[in-house]
Nucleic acid binder design. Structure first.
Length: 767
DNA sequence: GTAAGAAAAATTTTT
DNA sequence: TTTTTCTTAC
């Protein structure tokens, strides 16, 4: 450890601010600091450390466990803001108007509620866009403005008035009341309610103030006002608060993060000590210097000089292409080149983009080249329909008032309770301000226009959920989860669907969920306290899919948004789609404040790289099926040219003739003419061509046995022997429908029988 | 109440 | 292009 790291570790009392530049060993300092506290004899339960992601918490815990042992580490209060305070809220539920069994609404749930409120209020959903209303409410909660206070808070109410949306306050209040009656909290509530609990019950606050002698916060630059207030309150007594962060990497203002929190820390705690970790151990000098030249253009920041003692390394390369597909081809060819030349692993490459939508083109290009890849983020595993459906059963069993769970599964699998019935129940529930479940319990007293058979079906549904609820305490999580999946008919339904072409993965996903529960249950049994389903549910609500890394995923090219790359590092980083309007995003280039955040985001992107940064932009891009032209991002110009490779274009060492993905789309003649003018590629990336070829020979990728770049659909007949890219060889058993949409039933040698749509299947005739 | 087909909308980033 | 929502026929 260097000197500043060491003193940041050892100086444990009083408020400390650790400004940790990119790649400066921040996590190391944080973990060693905690380990140091433990070695000095502090009890782990007196240490609270807060992170933003489960992954960060888990990694830190593992590293600490290695130093001080798993037993000690497991008694630390370490986790995300949301999970730690959800835990506290459940423990203190007696003092609060929520039961400990409250469930958590994710964004989709809460957006659905907001949608239905807008509808019920008969508001114009052009003006009241559910997404925008949701983010207003979230923003209010993050700023400690409750529904009751909203209308009295000019900062919020006035903005609504001037944007002609005076009803947001009313929507907020109604949304709140619907969450309450459903015993549910959204993500923001977990934090807001914690502050409400603390101010209503000073004795509870005091208990935790006394308990937590040491408070540590990671990524402090990303805290919002609620988080700031909670942390401040908790640290009030002992004042042993240590925050770690980098103002240059503050990229979450859009969801309420306040960079001021870290900028003002020294004012908040005048007796603070400041540590600056400025040596970057991750990247080459060129990368660090280039990144500095970018972030230097931001006005609002804590002065610091990040430097590197590593080798100078390669300069940053900038690639230009004419279409997004060509961008995919060029980037992927270059990845393959580098991988062959330098004999590195696929996991040494990351493709980072501003928006998830950009991933698809790269996905296609990589697949064509047989390069394994993994896309992170996007639709989380837990947000998939089939997973949410099954989880909704579990939620409803634990908390029958959970209206969103109820709505999701009352007629799934189909049991003849249709929209009209559900709408009637909903109307009554809204009228009496009770949950759907409560309405159903008194269905016959309500005199609803629902016919007898339907009523009976509702009764059966209620009875089924109740049956599960009775068992939940006695069953372990897996047995219960499996029984519900089976008895509810979900498994059967998905199995039936899995026989068709489109629905095969859903069944597998649900199996994966069940397997996951099985594993957790097994682990918990060896530890002596069998997991129950309700406890599992508490965890899963706050989980994202960042931990679903199985062994197969270990050596793959990584694709993710720049946001989700924060905290990670890769040998080679490809920053793609670096164009005006995309990065900086057109939605964030309005004010200089927003633009500075985009610039910090770009800084984060560049500093992920250890050895090589390649920036790529395209002159046109397909968007909603239409071509839009694009200009290179201003951020490219902002990089000091000393650190940029002047030989702009890079030629592939190897020619992948069979890949047609670099060709411009046929429709667009304009782009086609561009293609003709395309300058000859200049410098080959490897300067030692001779040697490279021999490496290439030795390392030659196994050539695919079949060329899938064109398909043989028109020649596919029943009885023909074909090969599929993924499923391998098989025989066509049946053909249905006319050609563009023809379906083929194929019996694969190893994968069994499947129904595929010909136009997607890319079949090749063989034999 | 259900299913299929047509029309319209959608992409910023996430605990 | 894909996904969601609305419409219409059984």
């Amino acid at each position: 450890m260097n000197e500043s790291q060491l003193s940041a570790v050892k100086d444990i009392t009083g408020p400390s601010l650790i400004i940790a530049g990119a790649g400066s060993g921040k996590t190391r300092v944080l973990t060693y600091r905690i380990a140091h506290l433990l070695r000095l004899g502090r009890h782990p339960a007196t240490i609270l450390s807060l992170t933003f992601t489960n992954k960060a918490a888990r990694e830190m815990k593992e590293r600490i466990a290695k130093i001080v042992g798993a037993q000690v580490a497991s008694s630390l209060w370490m986790g995300t803001f949301h999970s730690i305070f959800a835990r506290i809220l459940r423990m203190e539920s007696a003092a609060f108007d929520y039961p400990a069994s409250f469930t958590i609404y994710d964004q989709l749930d809460s957006r659905n509620i907001i949608k239905s409120i807008i509808k019920d209020f008969k508001l114009n959903d052009e003006r009241y866009k559910p997404n925008e209303v949701q983010s207003r409410i979230s923003y209010a909660k993050n700023n400690l403005v409750t529904a009751a206070a909203y209308m009295q808070t000019p900062a919020f109410y006035q903005i609504d008035i001037s944007s002609n949306r005076p009803e947001i306050a009313r929507i907020y209040a109604e949304y709140d009341s619907r969450c309450k009656r459903a015993n549910s909290m959204d993500f923001d509530d977990l934090l807001l309610n914690t502050t409400l609990l603390f101010s209503k019950h000073p004795e509870i606050l005091q208990k935790y103030q006394r308990r937590f002698e040491y408070v540590l916060v990671d990524e402090y630059q990303d805290t919002n006002l609620v988080q700031y207030v909670i942390v401040k309150k908790l640290a009030e007594q002992h004042k042993n608060i240590c925050v770690v962060g980098d103002d240059s990497q503050s990229i979450y203002a859009f969801r309420g993060a306040r960079i001021e929190n870290i900028l003002n820390f020294q004012k908040d705690y005048p007796e603070n000590r400041l540590y600056k970790l400025e040596q970057n151990y991750r990247s080459t000098r060129n990368i660090v210097d280039a990144a500095n030249s970018i972030i230097d253009q931001n006005k609002n920041k804590i002065p610091k000089t990040v430097w590197s003692a590593n080798e100078a390394g390669d300069k940053i390369k900038v690639l230009e292409s004419y279409t997004d597909r060509e961008e995919g081809a060029i980037v992927c060819n270059l990845i393959k080149d580098i991988q062959l030349q330098e004999l590195c692993e696929y996991r040494d490459f990351a493709i980072l983009y501003r928006t998830h939508a950009q991933s698809r083109v790269f996905e296609e290009s990589l697949r064509k080249r047989n390069i394994p890849y993994k896309i992170y983020g996007g639709l989380s595993f837990y947000q998939r329909k089939e997973i949410k459906d099954l989880l909704a059963y579990y939620k409803l069993v634990v908390n029958p008032k959970d209206d969103e769970a109820f709505r999701r599964i009352i007629n799934y699998p189909r049991r003849g309770i249709g929209d009209t019935t559900v709408n009637r129940i909903e109307q009554v529930a809204n009228h009496y301000k009770v949950s759907f479940w409560d309405v159903c319990l008194k269905l016959r007293q309500m005199n609803l226009p629902i016919n007898q058979p339907t009523m009976q079906r509702i009764d059966e549904f209620i009875a089924m959920i109740n049956r599960f609820a009775e068992k939940i305490a006695d069953y372990d999580a897996y047995d219960m989860a499996y029984e519900i999946a089976k008895e509810s008919g979900v498994l059967k339904d998905l199995y039936a669907e899995s026989q068709e072409a489109e629905g095969l993965s859903r069944y597998q996903n649900v199996q994966e969920l069940l397997n996951g529960i099985k594993q957790l249950t097994a682990i918990s049994k060896t530890e002596g306290s069998p997991l129950t389903l309700d406890v599992f549910l508490q965890e899963v609500a706050l989980m994202t899919n960042d931990d679903n890394d199985n062994e197969d995923d270990k050596n793959k090219v990584v694709m993710m948004t720049v946001h989700s790359s924060k905290g990670l590092e890769f040998k080679n980083v490809f920053l793609v789609g670096i164009e005006e309007g995309l990065f900086p995003s057109e939605m964030s280039s309005g004010s200089s404040k927003e633009l500075e955040e985009e610039r910090r985001l770009f800084y984060v992107a560049v500093t992920r790289a250890q050895k090589r940064v390649v920036i790529s932009y395209s002159k046109s891009r397909l968007r909603w099926g239409e071509f839009v032209t694009a200009k290179p991002s201003r951020f490219i110009r902002e990089i000091n040219t000393d650190f940029i490779d002047n030989d702009l274009q890079v030629e592939s060492q190897f020619h992948y003739e069979s890949f047609d993905d670099a060709a411009p789309p046929k429709k667009d003649t304009h782009t086609q003419s561009y293609r003709q003018q395309q300058p000859q590629f200049k410098t080959p990336i490897g300067k030692t061509g001779q040697k490279l070829t021999s490496i290439n020979q030795a390392q030659k990728q196994p050539t695919p046995r079949y060329d899938f770049s064109t398909d043989d659909n028109s020649r596919v007949v029943e009885g023909a022997r074909v090969v599929h890219e993924r499923f391998g060889e098989g025989v066509v058993v049946k053909l249905e429908g006319a050609l563009p949409n023809a379906k083929a039933t194929i019996k694969f040698d190893s994968e069994g029988q499947r129904v595929l749509l010909l136009k997607f299947a890319k079949l090749k005739l063989i034999g």
